[in-house]
């Protein structure tokens, strides 16, 4: 990219009032909403059409799901803190909170891994029933999004050593934050839909 383009892109566009990066991330989230809406629609259609559908709490581990919900909500808070610290130009604070966010994301995946492992030990696989197909596919795709968030946040942590003063850096953290909150919100819908209904 040429030097002039980099200078231009951290300024908001005249007609929209937001930067390219922020507009881009919102459009990306719009497409993500369509993706997960489709998956939830599939869940509803299949559930309505099914001869029988198990109650989530009879099949899944509700306490672990509950803990995971709190883990993700906490990580959203630490993500906001990381953004605030980036805004304040506090490098140490930023690195502390973004690392915490990454750790919590790993904790979520580990707990999820225990849940899946228990299912596999009981010979429950995606092919077992249509409920299991929905459960594994939806939580699996959500898990991929969590991994994506870990990659993005780790990259920011790595870049912060050299690029923290870069004019685009705060915007990048904000974009990553918007994405991370979205991943969180998807789980807030997934948890009751699969575990509690």
């Amino acid at each position: 990219m040429s030097g002039t383009a980099a200078v231009l892109t951290h300024q908001p566009g005249e007609s929209t009032g937001v930067t390219n990066a922020k507009l881009g991330i919102w459009l990306f989230l719009a497409s993500e909403i369509m993706l997960f809406s489709t998956l939830f629609t599939t869940y509803i259609v299949l559930r309505i059409g099914a001869a029988s559908w198990p109650r989530g709490w009879n099949v899944l581990n509700v306490p672990l799901g509950m803990i995971n919900t709190f883990v993700l909500i906490t990580s959203s808070v630490t993500m906001v803190m990381a953004y605030a610290k980036a805004h304040e130009r506090d490098l140490k604070g930023f690195q502390r909170y973004i690392s915490l966010t990454i750790l919590l994301a790993f904790a979520f995946l580990v707990i999820k891994g225990f849940e899946w492992g228990a299912h596999f030990r009981h010979n429950e696989f995606p092919s077992t029933s249509i409920f299991h197909a929905v459960y594994f596919t939806l939580t699996g795709l959500h898990g991929l999004h969590v991994i994506g968030g870990i990659i993005v946040n780790s990259t920011l942590l790595y870049l912060s050593r050299t690029d923290f003063e870069h004019p685009l850096f705060v915007g990048r953290v904000e974009g990553a934050g918007l994405y991370w909150h979205f991943v969180d919100i998807v789980w807030i819908f997934l948890f009751p839909a699969l575990y509690l209904l």
Partner: peptide, 29 residues
């Protein structure tokens, strides 16, 4: 493209699951 393609992406993933993980998203009883 932005709003119509993600549903096909999701649908393709489900079909992929039907083929690879032997789920039955699109297979009747």
């Amino acid at each position: 493209l932005l709003l119509a393609f993600p549903p096909l992406e999701a649908a393709s993933v489900l079909q992929l699951m039907d083929r690879i993980a032997h789920t039955s998203f699109y297979l009747p009883q």
